[in-house]
Amino acid sequence: MKASNWLETHPARAVTVAPDASLPEAAALFLEHPEVRDIYVVDEKGRVCGHLGFRRLAGLLLAHLRPTHSRRQLVERVTAGAVREHMDEHVLCMRPDERISEVFHHHMERRVEDIPVVDADRRLLGVIRVADLLRKAIEPAG
């Protein structure tokens, strides 16, 4: 099935945040939308420029609960900046005309749970939730 067809039958709104937002602001968005595990960072023109996952954000904000740190994590802990400092700039997005079966495994390898669908200008059209794909897969036939 093509991404555009899936979005018509399973509409899911992507949650977005500005690059200059603080980490607690991003956390508040996650808490506001408990079903969301990935939020997308969009620039002033609405184009996707980054991605922030729930586990990464939780790891940053709860670093003081971790008994051991690598040097990299130590520096992250004491230099917490805005969302842009922690987002993954290499976001794997789908085009509306791409088939889910062709790109799904790439997303799973990157350990992201939602698949963003963007237009030619990288503006978000929607998001394909892996949970919805799973729900569909275990539905009884017919």
Partner: peptide, 10 residues
Amino acid sequence: LIGGAATVGQ
């Protein structure tokens, strides 16, 4: 790992 501990921005 020591070299990769921080970015210039950090």
